[in-house]
């Protein structure tokens, strides 16, 4: 290394050097997000494997009836919205949820931008909007889960082999072993994938609140920079990104 002969060059081992021109914290957040990508991919890849190894529904979409014998059509499963009981509104609610999360991502990046200008009031304002968006999303998800677990009015008649006898009974809603909408694996993946994502949103909201609190108490202003907003922002955008993939692979296709 020629660096040893030059007195003005910073020693690379004593800090102050930023590899890839990103600060330590930001780089570590990127590496964490890559590992989290693998975790979410594992869930989505497993979903793809099980879906392709299960029988698909053949026939007209309009004639679709839920049965454990074949994989359901998502738009026939997720067709309810709050306060409009019995209305067939396919994917509308999940569309609203997607919009809320994308919008909270926008307010987050606006908070980061305000942090660059050292505009404390604007950072506080946008962090509050982001927290509100995240909390609203969690509320929507709680409703969606409740609806999925409780089930529809009529349920689905299922024929099962129990202790050597064929037993016919009606299944309402879904849990980890029974599912009125399709094969039990479909409900399992719904709970695991949206649940894992929801956990990320929850921890994101908590982190966002922490950032808001520390902005409001002036910690970042005293520190001289709002880099923590950027780091937590990266995490929050990642949560939004994962939802974009969940939305496509679980609800659309």
């Amino acid at each position: 290394m020629a660096a040893t002969a030059q007195p003005n060059v910073k020693n690379v081992w004593l800090g102050g050097v930023e590899p890839m021109k990103a600060s330590y914290g930001k780089l570590m957040m990127w590496f964490f997000l890559i590992s989290d990508t693998f975790t979410f991919s594992a869930l989505l890849v497993a979903y793809g494997l099980v879906r392709f190894s299960s029988p698909a529904y053949v026939g007209q979409v309009a004639d679709f009836v839920a049965s454990p014998a074949y994989w359901p059509i998502p738009e026939k499963v997720f067709d309810a919205i709050p306060f409009f009981h019995g209305l067939h509104a396919p994917l509308v609610f999940v569309g609203i949820m997607t919009f809320i999360l994308i919008f909270s991502s926008v307010t987050m990046v606006l908070a980061v931008e305000a942090g660059h200008r050292m505009d404390r009031a604007a950072v506080e304002k946008y962090m509050l909007w982001t927290i509100l968006g995240g909390a609203t999303f969690l509320g929507c998800q709680a409703w969606e889960w409740t609806h999925f677990i409780v089930g529809t009015d009529s349920g689905t008649v299922v024929k099962e082999l129990i202790n050597g006898d064929w037993v016919t009974h009606t299944v309402f809603g879904a849990n980890l072993t029974q599912n009125q909408y399709g094969p039990p694996a479909f409900a399992d993946f719904f709970f695991f994938i949206t649940g894992f994502h929801g956990t990320h949103v929850l921890s994101g909201v908590i982190l966002n609140f922490l950032v808001f609190y520390r902005t409001a108490t002036g910690l970042y202003e005293r520190r001289g920079h709002y880099e923590m907003v950027e780091k937590i922002g990266l995490y929050w955008h990642f949560v939004d990104l994962v939802w974009v993939f969940v939305f496509t692979f679980f609800y659309l296709v």
């Binding site: 890839m20 990127w30 890559i34 990508t37 693998f38 991919s41 989505l44 890849v45 497993a46 793809g48 494997l49 099980v50 879906r51 392709f52 190894s53 299960s54 029988p55």
Partner: peptide, 24 residues
């Protein structure tokens, strides 16, 4: 460094979807 690891994810997704079809 972010994009290259994601290529493995795409590969795994395609590989296991084909695998799922063959299991079926």
């Amino acid at each position: 460094s972010i994009l290259i690891p994601c290529i493995f994810v795409v590969w795994l997704l395609i590989a296991l979807m084909r695998e799922g079809g063959s299991i079926f």
